[in-house]
Amino acid sequence: MNASALRRYTPFAASSLQSLLQYRSTFLINALTATTAVGVQVFLWRAVYGGRPGGLPGGYDLPRLTTYVLLAQVLGLMQASRVDEEVSGEVQRGDIAVSLLRPVSYPLARFAAGLPVSLTNATLVAVPVVALYALLLPLTAPTWGGMLLFAVSAALSLVIGFGVNLLVGLAGFVTTNIWGVRVVKDSVVAFFAGQVVPLALMPGPLAAVARVLPFQGMVDGPLRLLLGRYDGAAGAAVILTAQLGWAAALCALAALAWRGAVRRVEVLGG
Protein backbone atom coordinates (compact mmCIF):
# COMPACT_ATOMS: atom_id res chain seq x y z
CA MET A 1 0.00 0.00 0.00
CA ASN A 2 1.47 3.37 -0.97
CA ALA A 3 1.65 6.51 1.11
CA SER A 4 -1.28 8.27 -0.54
CA ALA A 5 -3.58 5.33 0.17
CA LEU A 6 -2.41 5.33 3.78
CA ARG A 7 -3.15 9.03 4.10
CA ARG A 8 -6.83 8.20 3.75
CA TYR A 9 -6.65 6.62 7.17
CA THR A 10 -5.08 9.50 9.06
CA PRO A 11 -8.41 11.33 9.46
CA PHE A 12 -9.78 8.28 11.26
CA ALA A 13 -6.94 8.48 13.76
CA ALA A 14 -7.30 12.25 14.12
CA SER A 15 -11.06 12.14 14.61
CA SER A 16 -10.77 9.32 17.12
CA LEU A 17 -8.29 11.38 19.13
CA GLN A 18 -10.59 14.40 18.93
CA SER A 19 -13.59 12.41 20.16
CA LEU A 20 -11.44 10.87 22.87
CA LEU A 21 -10.38 14.21 24.26
CA GLN A 22 -14.02 15.14 24.72
CA TYR A 23 -14.32 12.50 27.38
CA ARG A 24 -11.38 13.48 29.53
CA SER A 25 -12.66 11.85 32.69
CA THR A 26 -11.98 8.47 31.02
CA PHE A 27 -8.26 9.03 31.50
CA LEU A 28 -8.65 9.82 35.16
CA ILE A 29 -10.73 6.69 35.70
CA ASN A 30 -8.25 4.59 33.72
CA ALA A 31 -5.41 5.99 35.83
CA LEU A 32 -7.21 5.17 39.06
CA THR A 33 -8.07 1.66 37.87
CA ALA A 34 -4.50 0.98 36.77
CA THR A 35 -3.03 2.39 39.99
CA THR A 36 -5.30 0.21 42.10
CA ALA A 37 -4.71 -2.92 40.02
CA VAL A 38 -0.94 -2.50 40.24
CA GLY A 39 -1.15 -1.79 43.96
CA VAL A 40 -3.20 -4.89 44.69
CA GLN A 41 -0.91 -7.15 42.68
CA VAL A 42 2.31 -5.71 44.01
CA PHE A 43 1.24 -6.20 47.61
CA LEU A 44 -0.02 -9.68 46.83
CA TRP A 45 3.38 -10.63 45.41
CA ARG A 46 5.13 -9.05 48.38
CA ALA A 47 3.14 -11.34 50.65
CA VAL A 48 4.12 -14.33 48.50
CA TYR A 49 7.77 -13.31 48.70
CA GLY A 50 7.52 -12.87 52.44
CA GLY A 51 6.94 -16.63 52.72
CA ARG A 52 9.74 -17.50 50.26
CA PRO A 53 12.98 -15.86 51.22
CA GLY A 54 14.82 -17.71 48.47
CA GLY A 55 12.99 -15.80 45.71
CA LEU A 56 10.83 -17.17 42.93
CA PRO A 57 11.73 -19.42 40.02
CA GLY A 58 12.41 -17.90 36.62
CA GLY A 59 14.87 -15.40 38.05
CA TYR A 60 12.20 -12.99 39.24
CA ASP A 61 13.34 -11.12 42.33
CA LEU A 62 11.02 -8.63 43.98
CA PRO A 63 12.02 -5.40 42.15
CA ARG A 64 11.97 -7.24 38.83
CA LEU A 65 8.56 -8.71 39.55
CA THR A 66 7.23 -5.33 40.65
CA THR A 67 8.47 -3.84 37.37
CA TYR A 68 6.81 -6.70 35.50
CA VAL A 69 3.47 -6.26 37.22
CA LEU A 70 3.53 -2.50 36.72
CA LEU A 71 4.41 -2.62 33.04
CA ALA A 72 2.02 -5.50 32.44
CA GLN A 73 -0.78 -3.13 33.44
CA VAL A 74 0.59 -0.49 31.08
CA LEU A 75 0.62 -2.94 28.17
CA GLY A 76 -2.87 -4.06 29.09
CA LEU A 77 -4.03 -0.45 28.99
CA MET A 78 -2.45 0.13 25.61
CA GLN A 79 -4.07 -2.93 24.14
CA ALA A 80 -7.49 -1.92 25.43
CA SER A 81 -8.11 0.14 22.31
CA ARG A 82 -11.89 -0.34 22.52
CA VAL A 83 -11.89 -1.88 19.06
CA ASP A 84 -13.98 -4.86 20.20
CA GLU A 85 -16.54 -2.58 21.81
CA GLU A 86 -16.78 -0.18 18.89
CA VAL A 87 -17.02 -2.84 16.22
CA SER A 88 -19.64 -4.95 17.97
CA GLY A 89 -21.56 -1.79 18.87
CA GLU A 90 -21.64 -0.68 15.26
CA VAL A 91 -22.78 -4.09 14.15
CA GLN A 92 -25.58 -4.17 16.68
CA ARG A 93 -26.81 -0.64 16.12
CA GLY A 94 -26.60 -1.17 12.37
CA ASP A 95 -24.24 1.77 11.99
CA ILE A 96 -21.92 -0.63 10.22
CA ALA A 97 -24.02 0.21 7.15
CA VAL A 98 -22.67 3.75 7.17
CA SER A 99 -19.08 2.58 7.72
CA LEU A 100 -19.46 0.41 4.64
CA LEU A 101 -20.22 3.49 2.56
CA ARG A 102 -16.72 4.84 2.97
CA PRO A 103 -14.11 4.03 0.34
CA VAL A 104 -11.68 2.56 2.86
CA SER A 105 -10.88 -0.80 4.39
CA TYR A 106 -12.95 -1.10 7.53
CA PRO A 107 -10.36 -3.06 9.58
CA LEU A 108 -7.62 -0.58 8.68
CA ALA A 109 -9.84 2.39 9.53
CA ARG A 110 -10.60 0.71 12.86
CA PHE A 111 -6.90 0.19 13.51
CA ALA A 112 -6.24 3.85 12.71
CA ALA A 113 -9.01 4.87 15.09
CA GLY A 114 -7.73 2.54 17.81
CA LEU A 115 -4.14 3.74 17.68
CA PRO A 116 -4.72 7.13 19.36
CA VAL A 117 -6.68 5.39 22.12
CA SER A 118 -3.66 3.17 22.81
CA LEU A 119 -1.17 5.98 22.60
CA THR A 120 -3.09 8.46 24.74
CA ASN A 121 -3.62 5.77 27.34
CA ALA A 122 0.11 5.07 27.23
CA THR A 123 1.08 8.70 27.70
CA LEU A 124 -1.68 10.26 29.76
CA VAL A 125 -2.30 7.27 32.01
CA ALA A 126 0.75 5.04 31.99
CA VAL A 127 3.45 7.66 32.42
CA PRO A 128 2.03 9.14 35.65
CA VAL A 129 1.21 5.70 37.08
CA VAL A 130 4.72 4.37 36.36
CA ALA A 131 6.26 7.55 37.77
CA LEU A 132 4.19 7.19 40.93
CA TYR A 133 5.27 3.59 41.57
CA ALA A 134 8.87 4.38 40.65
CA LEU A 135 8.89 6.77 43.59
CA LEU A 136 7.15 4.38 45.96
CA LEU A 137 8.76 1.00 45.27
CA PRO A 138 12.12 -0.39 44.18
CA LEU A 139 12.03 -1.22 40.45
CA THR A 140 14.53 -2.82 38.09
CA ALA A 141 15.99 -0.26 35.70
CA PRO A 142 16.01 -1.76 32.20
CA THR A 143 19.05 -1.59 29.92
CA TRP A 144 19.02 0.56 26.75
CA GLY A 145 19.06 -2.57 24.65
CA GLY A 146 16.17 -3.94 26.65
CA MET A 147 14.18 -0.78 26.11
CA LEU A 148 14.81 -0.85 22.38
CA LEU A 149 13.68 -4.46 22.09
CA PHE A 150 10.71 -3.64 24.29
CA ALA A 151 9.66 -0.76 22.02
CA VAL A 152 9.64 -3.03 18.96
CA SER A 153 7.93 -5.80 20.88
CA ALA A 154 5.32 -3.47 22.38
CA ALA A 155 4.44 -2.22 18.91
CA LEU A 156 3.93 -5.82 17.77
CA SER A 157 1.87 -6.51 20.86
CA LEU A 158 -0.45 -3.69 19.81
CA VAL A 159 -1.06 -5.40 16.48
CA ILE A 160 -1.73 -8.73 18.21
CA GLY A 161 -4.10 -7.02 20.62
CA PHE A 162 -5.85 -5.33 17.71
CA GLY A 163 -6.28 -8.63 15.88
CA VAL A 164 -7.78 -10.30 18.96
CA ASN A 165 -10.09 -7.36 19.65
CA LEU A 166 -11.25 -7.10 16.06
CA LEU A 167 -12.10 -10.80 16.03
CA VAL A 168 -14.04 -10.42 19.26
CA GLY A 169 -15.82 -7.35 17.84
CA LEU A 170 -16.78 -9.28 14.73
CA ALA A 171 -18.47 -11.84 16.97
CA GLY A 172 -21.19 -9.17 17.05
CA PHE A 173 -22.31 -10.58 13.71
CA VAL A 174 -22.99 -13.94 15.33
CA THR A 175 -24.25 -13.18 18.81
CA THR A 176 -25.96 -10.27 20.48
CA ASN A 177 -24.39 -11.09 23.84
CA ILE A 178 -21.11 -9.52 22.92
CA TRP A 179 -20.73 -8.25 26.47
CA GLY A 180 -20.34 -11.81 27.74
CA VAL A 181 -17.85 -12.65 25.02
CA ARG A 182 -15.82 -9.60 25.96
CA VAL A 183 -15.76 -10.40 29.65
CA VAL A 184 -14.52 -13.91 28.92
CA LYS A 185 -12.00 -12.59 26.41
CA ASP A 186 -10.70 -9.99 28.85
CA SER A 187 -9.94 -12.49 31.59
CA VAL A 188 -8.70 -15.31 29.35
CA VAL A 189 -6.45 -12.98 27.39
CA ALA A 190 -5.14 -11.23 30.51
CA PHE A 191 -4.28 -14.56 32.10
CA PHE A 192 -2.61 -16.23 29.12
CA ALA A 193 -0.85 -13.00 28.14
CA GLY A 194 0.90 -13.13 31.48
CA GLN A 195 -0.69 -9.93 32.68
CA VAL A 196 -1.48 -11.47 36.05
CA VAL A 197 1.40 -13.94 36.47
CA PRO A 198 4.53 -14.15 34.31
CA LEU A 199 4.55 -17.33 32.23
CA ALA A 200 7.75 -18.41 34.01
CA LEU A 201 5.86 -18.56 37.31
CA MET A 202 2.89 -20.51 35.98
CA PRO A 203 2.59 -24.24 36.74
CA GLY A 204 4.23 -26.32 33.98
CA PRO A 205 1.19 -27.48 31.97
CA LEU A 206 -0.46 -24.07 32.15
CA ALA A 207 2.71 -22.36 31.00
CA ALA A 208 2.95 -24.87 28.14
CA VAL A 209 -0.56 -23.95 27.02
CA ALA A 210 0.19 -20.25 27.35
CA ARG A 211 3.32 -20.59 25.24
CA VAL A 212 1.45 -21.95 22.22
CA LEU A 213 -1.26 -19.28 22.36
CA PRO A 214 -0.89 -15.90 20.65
CA PHE A 215 -1.57 -13.97 23.84
CA GLN A 216 1.89 -14.44 25.41
CA GLY A 217 3.16 -12.01 22.78
CA MET A 218 0.98 -9.29 24.30
CA VAL A 219 2.60 -8.99 27.75
CA ASP A 220 5.01 -11.77 28.65
CA GLY A 221 7.07 -11.47 25.45
CA PRO A 222 7.69 -7.71 25.55
CA LEU A 223 8.47 -7.79 29.28
CA ARG A 224 10.91 -10.67 28.98
CA LEU A 225 12.74 -8.59 26.40
CA LEU A 226 12.70 -5.53 28.64
CA LEU A 227 13.88 -7.40 31.72
CA GLY A 228 16.42 -9.55 29.91
CA ARG A 229 14.67 -12.87 30.65
CA TYR A 230 15.83 -14.60 27.44
CA ASP A 231 18.82 -16.62 26.19
CA GLY A 232 21.03 -14.37 24.13
CA ALA A 233 20.26 -12.84 20.77
CA ALA A 234 18.70 -16.08 19.55
CA GLY A 235 16.27 -16.05 22.48
CA ALA A 236 15.23 -12.48 21.71
CA ALA A 237 14.81 -13.35 18.05
CA VAL A 238 12.53 -16.26 18.97
CA ILE A 239 10.28 -13.98 21.03
CA LEU A 240 10.05 -11.34 18.29
CA THR A 241 9.56 -13.88 15.51
CA ALA A 242 6.75 -15.54 17.41
CA GLN A 243 5.11 -12.16 17.91
CA LEU A 244 5.51 -11.26 14.26
CA GLY A 245 4.07 -14.58 13.20
CA TRP A 246 1.07 -14.26 15.49
CA ALA A 247 0.50 -10.64 14.48
CA ALA A 248 0.43 -11.65 10.82
CA ALA A 249 -1.72 -14.71 11.48
CA LEU A 250 -4.27 -12.81 13.55
CA CYS A 251 -4.50 -10.01 11.00
CA ALA A 252 -5.04 -12.54 8.24
CA LEU A 253 -7.66 -14.32 10.33
CA ALA A 254 -9.42 -11.05 11.13
CA ALA A 255 -9.36 -10.06 7.46
CA LEU A 256 -10.88 -13.41 6.56
CA ALA A 257 -13.52 -13.12 9.27
CA TRP A 258 -14.33 -9.62 8.10
CA ARG A 259 -14.82 -10.75 4.52
CA GLY A 260 -17.12 -13.48 5.68
CA ALA A 261 -18.99 -11.18 8.03
CA VAL A 262 -19.56 -8.45 5.51
CA ARG A 263 -21.32 -10.89 3.21
CA ARG A 264 -23.88 -11.61 5.85
CA VAL A 265 -24.59 -8.05 6.90
CA GLU A 266 -28.29 -7.81 7.49
CA VAL A 267 -29.23 -4.35 8.51
CA LEU A 268 -32.97 -4.35 8.82
CA GLY A 269 -35.07 -1.25 8.91
CA GLY A 270 -33.77 2.24 8.49
Binding site: R8, P11, A14, S15, P103
Partner: peptide
Protein backbone atom coordinates in the same frame (compact mmCIF):
# COMPACT_ATOMS: atom_id res chain seq x y z
CA UNK B 1 -12.66 17.81 6.66
CA UNK B 2 -12.52 14.06 7.23
CA UNK B 3 -14.61 13.30 4.15
CA UNK B 4 -12.35 15.53 2.11
CA UNK B 5 -9.33 13.43 3.06
CA UNK B 6 -11.11 10.09 2.87
CA UNK B 7 -12.42 10.78 -0.62
CA UNK B 8 -9.29 12.68 -1.66
Amino acid sequence: RILRRVHE
